[in-house]
Computed example of a mutant assay.
Amino acid sequence: MTASLDLAAQITAKIDRGELTPGARLPEVALAEELGVSRNTLREAFRVLMQDGLVDHIPNRGVFVHTFSRDDVTDLYAYREFVELSAIRFAAKNPLILADSLVAMRDAYDRGFAANEVGDWQEVGSANSAFHLAIVDLAGVARLSADARKVLALARIGFMATYNPETFHSPYVAMNLEILELLNDGKFEEAEASLHTYFEHSRTDLLAHLPENDKVS
């Protein structure tokens, strides 16, 4: 089981990096050879990923990276807002964890800023995921961080398949900096309010640009 969980984590990372896009078919034989695993182990990993909502199995067709719907957006943002805002509330009580997370957040912001400057939107998206995972890490709960990594990968599926990536990603680089600076200054309530605004804008933006068929694919 450990092998299949490790493999599921590898595939999740590929989704988060934008290497596997929404609706992409995951060919069993080719993927097993690429990753150096047995087909049985890959099938077990697929089952884990299906439970996490990252892939879909379509009978007689195969396994595909999940495609996004409005319900996905609503559920994901409700989860993310609850978890990340709660993590910020823990931050004041965990100075050592806060210090480590601020370093990770600064690194992620710097990566996102540099990528934004050269128009590398895939890297901007990856850096954004890393930034918000560092916020979750403020809670100091390893299992929560592991779950959040899966949720952020699922969110990335929606981001990757939206309209103009520059229009979607670029404004949030500055929003992340504001959150980072407020946390660095110990202004936790203001950071929480800024993060809430971030989620409101991002959720509204994504919902407004879903295709007519209610799916991002």
Rank of each mutant, 00 (worst) to 15 (best):
P59K: 01
V118M: 11
T12H: 00
V37A: 05
E34G: 07
Y163V: 12
V136E: 00
T12M: 08
D107R: 15
F168N: 04
A130H: 05
L35E: 00
I97V: 15
A148G: 01
S86R: 12
T197M: 09
D71Q: 15
F64C: 05
R70P: 06
I11V: 12
F46E: 01
Y172V: 00
A78S: 15
H209V: 12
Q10S: 14
S4N: 05
V48Y: 07
M160H: 02
S86W: 10
F68D: 09
F168G: 04
Y163A: 14
F90C: 14
L5F: 12
R47K: 14
T12D: 00
A193Y: 04
Y163L: 13
S217H: 11
I179Y: 01
L35V: 00
L207F: 06
S86N: 14
R39M: 09
V216I: 15
R43Q: 13
L180K: 01
A99H: 14
L133F: 06
I58P: 04
L102H: 03
S194N: 06
G36L: 00
R89K: 12
M160D: 08
D100A: 13
E81L: 13
R25I: 14
A115W: 01
F199Q: 04
A193I: 02
L180T: 01
F90N: 11
R17W: 09
G62I: 05
F64L: 09
L42Y: 01
L207I: 13
R39G: 08
D137M: 06
L31S: 01
V73C: 06
N116T: 12
F188Q: 07
D137C: 07
F188L: 07
E84W: 03
D6C: 10
D185E: 15
D100K: 11
L138E: 00
L49P: 01
G18A: 03
F188Y: 15
D56P: 00
R17D: 13
F68H: 10
A91I: 03
P95A: 08
I97F: 08
L182R: 04
L183T: 01
E200L: 14
A208R: 10
L152A: 03
V118Y: 08
D205T: 08
L207A: 10
E181H: 08
F82E: 13
S38P: 03
E200A: 14
R149S: 15
